[in-house]
Design a protein around this nucleic acid. Sequence first.
DNA 1: AATGATTATTAGCCGAAGCTAACTTTTTAC
DNA 2: GTAAAAAGTTAGCTTCGGCTAATAATCATT
Lengths: 152, 152
Amino acid sequence: MSTDENLASEHQESEARPAEARVEAFIGVREARRSEVAEDYVELIAELIHEQGEARPVDIAARMGVTAPTVAKTLGRLARDGLITRAKYRSVFLTEEGRALAKECRERHEIVLRFLLRLGLDPETAERDAEGIEHHVSQRTLALFSDFADRN
Amino acid sequence: MSTDENLASEHQESEARPAEARVEAFIGVREARRSEVAEDYVELIAELIHEQGEARPVDIAARMGVTAPTVAKTLGRLARDGLITRAKYRSVFLTEEGRALAKECRERHEIVLRFLLRLGLDPETAERDAEGIEHHVSQRTLALFSDFADRN
DNA sequence: AATGATTATTAGCCGAAGCTAACTTTTTAC
DNA sequence: GTAAAAAGTTAGCTTCGGCTAATAATCATT
Ligand SMILES: [Mn+2]
Ligand SMILES: [Mn+2]
Ligand SMILES: [Mn+2]
Ligand SMILES: [Mn+2]
């Protein structure tokens, strides 16, 4: 017999089988959470390089709204994970992998933002919500958002 | 003179003033992240109480896809924060505050889910994305989602 | 070239949220 | 009513991502 055939032997409700799908959702969300900070950092680093020619920790800290030591520690993780390179007291560079991730994040961010604006949201709230939502949209949802923003 | 009048003295770009709005967005997202787990737990606890009559740690663990000790520790935080009450080796109860939060989360979850389905997303992906997105939609966005789901 | 201001790093603290291993309590089966 | 199974708890470990305080390096001004 299957491992969890009659888990709800007594209290079987009218639902099809939501529990199994639900647990997968939770696991997926926890997975997504683990890359949120890295995504925001590489996106911002790419922006700074584009806008200012280089990404300095002091500017990362200012734009992220965190302290310099927090930035330093996070950059350590990004370097460990192969997304950036850095030398002591120098500004930060994206690796190939980091650039690819940054591009992906920027595009996703823009699609979510355009979508929210098209829905009728004010720019400040749209920016705020997009910054959080962007990390939790699947490719399918992103495609639908993009269609909607273009179509309407 | 103001504290940050000419931060971008040299590299002033064409943007209006996105940096200040941006940092507020990041701060807001970090704030929202701090309640994600609590929200998912109280929502699930309310569901279990409704479906099964009681919320037992073993069922919370199964549905959340985490281990029993993780549940125990999280329940400790929820109790500390006044969202649940519990006695050793007994099932979990929501406080008034916990019930209120659970209701709010359930309604928000449903609006986001209905919205995604109405957009054309398949149910599994919709459930997955809703589980993450729900924690990052403002009241305004929620209202727009609700309107869209009803209208279309 | 010296010095003061700015920037960056390091050390060390904290809480959240995950885990395994070990133990206790409760429930179930016989 | 006892023994086994299930459920719950506790202890202790880890990583992440925040912080402050202290130190070190770089940059700018003269
Ligand atoms: Mn973001
Ligand atoms: Mn972003
Ligand atoms: Mn959720
Ligand atoms: Mn939910």
